[in-house]
């Protein structure tokens, strides 16, 4: 396939697939723990971190941008925790508030960056919607350096992670450090977000966390299968998006990847056996006819 023959295309495709697979896998826990909105807020909140990292160092090195993005996202999560614990503001309102504050601050920083002489290669749009075409080999290594430890942590503690996600009260009663696992799973989610920001951008990143998990849930009743399927769907959508973007001049890869992922999700919601809308309708009709 020409996607893998051309060096630039190959880098973009592999990078996108890595992002799709890792965020798909880790996103399952965000969805099952009902933290999808937190993921969205954290990915938006990463924007000022990236902008500041770029502003301070003047470099577009992936590791520096990752550190900036992760710090801002974690700061936002921490702030959220403090607001919910110490005030009467409910968590959905606090989420919206913090998302807006961080994202707004990020936009201000970006508009300032725009006027800087060296900002041409790191324009406004590339941070908001990603710029997959600019991925280089070093970016891939950075993605692996963040993604592999995150995946490994989840796999090492798989039984505990599963129990804490399903029934935290019971987990605490047998002595598991549930708080610690909450922190671990949030850090892992930040890792997934940070990996995706260069490719799909802060605005659309939460779709890559949530959509593969929702699609995968339709096809299986086992968590083990679900995470593998979600990773597969994420990678598949990423490859399809990368390929589509080569068909026309100036078609943005990130949004195309998200669109492909949404397509997979919609198809899963309609056609999956057992849980799909079509299936459930058919069965309802059968039951009605039988009675």
């Amino acid at each position: 396939m020409e996607l893998f023959a051309d060096y630039t295309l190959r880098t973009v495709t592999i990078g996108a697939m890595l992002l799709g697979a890792i965020s798909g896998f880790l996103g399952c826990f965000a969805v099952l723990r009902r933290q999808a909105l937190l993921g969205d807020a954290m990915s938006h909140a990463a924007l000022p971190g990236i902008a500041l990292a770029f502003l301070l160092t003047g470099q577009r090195d992936p590791f520096i941008l990752f550190v900036g993005a992760a710090s801002a996202a974690l700061l936002a999560a921490l702030w959220l925790l403090v607001v919910v614990r110490t005030t009467r503001i409910k968590d959905d309102a606090a989420l919206a508030l913090i998302l807006a504050v961080f994202f707004g601050f990020g936009l201000v920083l970006l508009s300032y960056l725009q006027r800087q002489p060296n900002a041409a290669q790191a324009g406004l749009k590339s941070f908001l919607f990603g710029q997959a075409a600019a991925l280089i080999e070093r970016d891939l290594w950075a993605m692996l350096a963040v993604g592999v430890p995150a995946l490994a942590l989840v796999l090492i503690f798989w039984p505990q992670v599963k129990l804490v996600t399903f029934d935290p009260d019971f987990a605490r009663s047998i002595g598991l450090p549930v708080r610690g696992f909450d922190v671990l799973l949030n850090v892992v989610m930040v890792a997934a977000i940070v990996i995706g920001i260069q490719t799909v951008g802060v605005v659309l990143m939460s779709a890559m966390l949530v959509a593969p998990a929702v699609a995968a849930r339709q096809w299986t009743n086992r968590l083990e299968t679900m995470v593998v399927l979600a990773a597969g769907f994420g990678a598949l959508a990423a490859m399809a998006g990368a390929w589509l973007s080569t068909l026309g001049e100036g078609l943005a890869t990130g949004p195309l990847i998200v669109l492909m992922m949404s397509l997979v999700t919609v198809l899963s919601l309609v056609f999956a056996p057992g849980r799909g809308l079509l299936w459930r309708n058919l069965r309802r009709r059968q039951v009605l006819q039988a009675s």
């Binding site: 029934d167 009260d169 849930r217 009743n221 086992r222 968590l223």
Partner: peptide, 20 residues
């Protein structure tokens, strides 16, 4: 107190009793 739509089997849930 839990989400019964969680993707897991009956046996898996009972196995959790052994985790401690």
């Amino acid at each position: 107190s839990v989400d019964w739509d969680f993707p897991t089997t009956v046996l898996d849930v009972v196995l959790m009793g052994r985790y401690g």
